[in-house]
Simulated assay, not measured.
Amino acid sequence: MNIEEIGFYKIGDTVLREPPARDDCFKVVNRDADAHEYGDNSEIARREMIHRHMANEMTSVDMAAICVAEFPDAPWGLRMELARQAWDEARHVRVLYRRLKELGGYKGEFPVSTLEFDMTCAVDNLVGRIAIQNRTLEAGAMDVIGGLALNFRAIGDDRTADMLDGINVDEIQHVRFANRWIKKLAQSNPRELMRMASAIRFLTAANANFQIKEGGEVNAVGAKLASPEKRIPAVNVDLRQAAEFSEDEIHEILRQAGFRTLVPREKTA
């Protein structure tokens, strides 16, 4: 990618996409140290979590929509999946914003990030983008949201937990269609697998510019940040299976997460 092209910027040796526009009320940051994550179950921490995920869903709208716009020659079925995803993510923004207001919050109350867009949309091919956004970031979000729903339910906030569970139902399909289309495209052109692998390597290198390196540092509100390995969410195996990850892939994801899985919910007779 030519750094002199309009729409890109550089961090170290990494070229990223210029971030999407945000309302003036939002302060955009891209480092955990600049965020306002409180790390507890206080009222303000709950609002910040919902606000953060609202902002992430806004970024997901941008990523899915720009793929439709920038890859007009992609297979029609894949373009339709991306268009539906943009619609789903927009609905998620609305329900999260509604819940935020119910808890006394407002948009712009906390810093937000567009980093996922900046990294994903710096990739110049569609297989690479859905490998990053859907198969990696959205799949990771399923793990995060699943854990958060359990936490909210444990403190008696079933309304927020139900909302998060509902969002995760949509996310399964967003990950699943990427898995299906990557396989389908690779069958007709094996080079697509090389593009996917290159995109994931790029994501790893780009993300390293912003990650916490050691842990123990404090963020903008004085909360101590955990080390990188402790920030890996527990793996939601059921949702990964529903999204059509293979058993070998799930085993590798579990290995990387230290074999931590979400505690299965109790089954009723």
Rank of each mutant, 00 (worst) to 15 (best):
D162T: 08
G222K: 06
A205C: 11
D143T: 05
M194F: 12
N151H: 13
E89D: 10
G147F: 03
A161L: 01
A243S: 13
G216T: 05
F152M: 15
T261I: 15
Q256G: 12
I200C: 10
N56V: 02
F117E: 12
K10S: 11
L96A: 14
F71K: 10
A90K: 12
D162H: 10
V15A: 09
E4Q: 09
F71Y: 15
E214C: 06
E109K: 04
K213H: 12
M142Q: 13
Q187N: 11
H51S: 08
L239G: 01
F177M: 13
A21L: 12
E192T: 09
A269E: 15
F202P: 05
Y9V: 02
R159L: 05
A55F: 01
M119D: 11
A199G: 04
E217A: 12
V29S: 08
H174A: 00
E18C: 07
G216I: 02
R231L: 08
F177C: 03
K230L: 12
E116Y: 08
L164K: 03
V144W: 04
A269P: 15
R98P: 02
A55N: 03
N189T: 01
F245N: 06
R201F: 12
R99T: 10
T160F: 04
G215K: 04
G7N: 06
D88K: 02
K224E: 15
N30L: 08
S198C: 10
R91A: 11
V144H: 06
V15L: 14
G104T: 06
